Simulated scan of single mutants.
Amino acid sequence: MSKFMKTVENRYHYSLVVLRELVRTDFKLRYQGSFLGIAWSVLKPLMLFCVMYVVFAKFLRMSDGTPTYPVVLLLGISTWQFVEEATSVGLRSVVDRGDLLRKIHFPNYIVVVSSTIGALISYAINLVVVLVFALFSHVQFTWRVLLLPLNFIELYILSLGIALLLSSMYVYFRDIAHLWDVLKQVLFYAMPVIYPLGMVMDNQSLQPFGKLIAQMQLLNPIAQTVQDIRHNLIAPETQPTIWTISGHVWMGLIPVALSVFIFWLGIYVFRKNNRKFAEVM
């Protein structure tokens, strides 16, 4: 086992060094020249949360009727912000690092991975803020928090897969950035991020298809991971997931399988085209 680990370390040592330096540089440059600096990684989702909470929870009365809903809303927004940042920055990462890729020899995928890790660091900071809010809201944590690492792994490989796929296409088709911007908005409002899933299941105008529509929403792997994280961290009683509303194990595995497939597809497309990136750019 030790021999295997040593072989892996020797093989990927250079790549890990480059990855670490890129992540460090990107994170420093992100807030360079800003008065508040790294604090913006916390302030941005908090400001968005305040706007969403006032508009949807206070004026439009979108709530699940529990004291934990503000924390659930903040957690959903923070999780979506991670997916949005990881995919948007990852989409442009190869083109933005084109000069570096032509001058220095290292695996091209590292620039995409470094961009997603930068988004992951911001997400980790936001989760600390969510935990503080949860403590003040007297959230009762359960054993389900032990399942969170699996949720975060699924969320990351899904975001990385999308980023690899989009970055490959963006080298050839710059319109992909505009299409993805539109698709992100569609995905955001098609998922129960700012509104509780119960509003779909209990909506009288959607009956008798409310539950079916909710299940279809949760077949989206992004929506499924958002709900799973909310369910396992904040409110298992009030946050339904595909596992709890479908009654079938295989339905719960569909979004997981889609996440793995998107990750594999991203790797496949990127590896197939990455040698031509320097020529095209």
Rank of each mutant, 00 (worst) to 15 (best):
V42M: 05
I104K: 01
Q81C: 07
T87F: 02
T116W: 02
E84W: 14
D96A: 15
L43W: 04
P70S: 05
L135R: 15
V130L: 11
G76F: 07
L131Y: 06
S41P: 00
M52Q: 06
L127R: 11
V112T: 08
S34E: 12
T87I: 10
S115G: 02
L127Y: 11
E84Q: 14
L46W: 03
A57W: 04
G37H: 02
V111T: 05
V112C: 03
P67C: 07
C50Y: 14
R102T: 07
N126I: 03
A86T: 07
E84L: 14
G118C: 08
L100R: 01
P45L: 05
L131T: 13
R61P: 03
S93P: 06
T68I: 13
S34N: 12
S34F: 08
L135Y: 14
V128T: 09
V89G: 10
L101I: 00
V132W: 05
T116P: 06
Y53K: 04
N126K: 13
L135N: 14
G37P: 01
V128C: 10
S93D: 02
A119R: 04
A124C: 12
S63V: 00
I110W: 01
F56C: 13
R97W: 11
T66V: 14
T66K: 15
A124E: 12
G37C: 08
I125L: 11
A86K: 05
W40T: 06
L101Y: 00
L91P: 04
E84S: 15
V83C: 10
F49T: 07
I117N: 04
V95H: 14
G90Q: 09
F35K: 15
F133D: 13
Y109C: 10
M47H: 12
T116D: 05
V113Q: 04
E85K: 08
M52A: 11
K44Y: 08
W40R: 02
F106L: 01
K103N: 09
V71Y: 01
L100K: 01
C50G: 14
V132F: 13
V89A: 12
S114G: 07
V71E: 01
